[in-house]
Structures are given as structure tokens and as C-alpha cells.
Amino acid sequence: MLKLAALDEDDLKIVSAHVQDAVIRVGDMRWDKGARRFLLEINRFAWESPVNSVFNQRYERRRSVLHFEGVQAVRASGITRDKVDDVLVLLSIRFTPEDAPAGTIELIFAGDHALRLQVDYVEGRLTDLGAAWEAGSKPAHFG
């Protein structure tokens, strides 16, 4: 099980690598404006798992929570909040500093979908919630 914290841009790159190809329902994303927290429940592909290999041909996913603190505002592009059953595939997370330590955290999804979180600082946490289950295949990347 994985438990990571991101407290700067370099940490966020590590978290981004671990959540690449995570599958997320729109209904599993929440912004608590009062607590200034944005939370996503995700099914992440366990890239770090020793069973995920070309030779083994067995792959795993894990239910995880990814959340960010100090969130002042959330903007979405191509995502409709009332379509709670729409599924998104997370490609990457990046941070753009604006007035350090404040800036923008962008969550980039397949299909030209994105979220922008205006944050006071970088503080994100990724926590696996339980056991892994077998995934039918490994995500394919073309380029």
C-alpha cells in the first residue's frame, strides 16, 4: 500500500507518476470550500507493483484517495459536475507557481479535460485505501 505526501513541485511530480492512468468518476470528486480541500477518490493503476511486468502479464489497480489542501478556487474544463457517472482518466498533475508558495495545480485528463486548483501552497496526499485487485490490462501509451 502506498502513502505519499507532496509538499513542493518535485514531490508533486512523484505523486503524478503514481496516479498516471487513474480512473475517476466525476461524482467521486469533491471540493470542500470551507475546509479549502479538494478530494478525489480514484482507482489508480499500481505502476510500482512487482506483479506489473511484461513477463508476468498480471496487473493491479488500487482504490486510493488523492487530496489537496489550501485550495482557494476550482475551475473545470470539459467536465460537467452533474454528469456524476462520467469517467475520466488522469494523465498528469503539474504545478505552476504564481506568487510562491501559491500557484496553480493542474490535473490533466484524457480527452482535453482538466481541473485547475488555485492553491496557497502545495500540499497533496495520496493514500491507498485497501487491497489491490487484478486489472484486465496495462494502460497503453501511444506517441
Rank of each mutant, 00 (worst) to 15 (best):
A110W: 08
D8Y: 05
G78C: 03
G136R: 12
N52S: 15
E9V: 06
A17M: 12
D86V: 02
E98S: 10
I93G: 01
V87H: 01
F38P: 01
A35Q: 15
R94G: 08
R125V: 11
A73C: 00
D99Q: 13
P97G: 04
H67P: 01
R44F: 04
L115W: 09
G103S: 06
S77Q: 15
G130W: 02
D21T: 09
F55V: 08
F109P: 03
T104E: 12
L129A: 04
V15M: 08
L40E: 08
V74Q: 07
N56M: 06
L2Y: 07
D11V: 07
G70P: 03
R61S: 10
I14M: 08
S77M: 10
H18T: 13
G70H: 08
A76K: 14
R125Y: 06
D120Y: 04
Y121H: 15
R81S: 14
R30G: 10
Q72A: 13
D32R: 04
D32W: 01
S49R: 14
E134M: 09
A6P: 01
K33I: 12
D120Q: 12
R25F: 11
A17E: 14
D11L: 06
T80K: 07
A46P: 00
L129N: 10
V54E: 13
D120E: 15
F95Y: 15
T96A: 10
E41M: 10
R62C: 10
S137G: 05
E98V: 14
V84W: 05
V23T: 13
S53D: 11
S53V: 03
R62W: 02
